[in-house]
Amino acid sequence: MKEVYEVRMHGRAGQGAKSGSQLLAEAAFKEGKYIQSFPEYGSERRGAPTVSYTKIAEKVLKSHEPIVTPDVVMVLDFGIMRSILVAAGLPDTGILIVNTKVCSTEIKKLAQFNGTLYGVDATGISLELLGMDTPNVPMLGALVKLTGIVKMESLEYVLREHFLPKIGEEKVQKNISMLRRGYEEVFK
């Protein structure tokens, strides 16, 4: 693992980029890592493009700067790729994961990325299992499959810890299923 592992999540306000970043950070924290997770705040309103950062390291994270050379970029809504260069700073060896049914020519063109592009139908999984479009959780499953940066059980633990008091056991189970489906269904 490089000194600081950096994940940048692009989405639209309401899709859970901020919670997704935080869940990932907390899972790593549970495994004894040093972490930072923070969103970039604009004038937040549902639907506006958002970006959120997670840094994971073996030693104390001193710098508070945003992520400019990520290891992984996750895109929760491919539509934002029309206005934002999501792969900015992502090296060709990096990983780009997009919430999509297919890695279409259009997406590949919008991505402007020479490395490997992965897709996962996070919206489809989320609508099927939860009846709501919250793509962040299946996207995290895909991330674990591709990088192994945290363990699935750590993510499942923090999902339960966070959401049990808010949404109850049944929906926690559904979120865990969404996480596992994202893990299994990520494709090139």
Partner: peptide
């Protein structure tokens, strides 16, 4: 403390 940079960032 710094607004957002510290107040809204999750750290150990």
């Amino acid at each position: 403390q710094d607004g957002f940079i510290t107040s809204h960032a999750v750290e150990p």
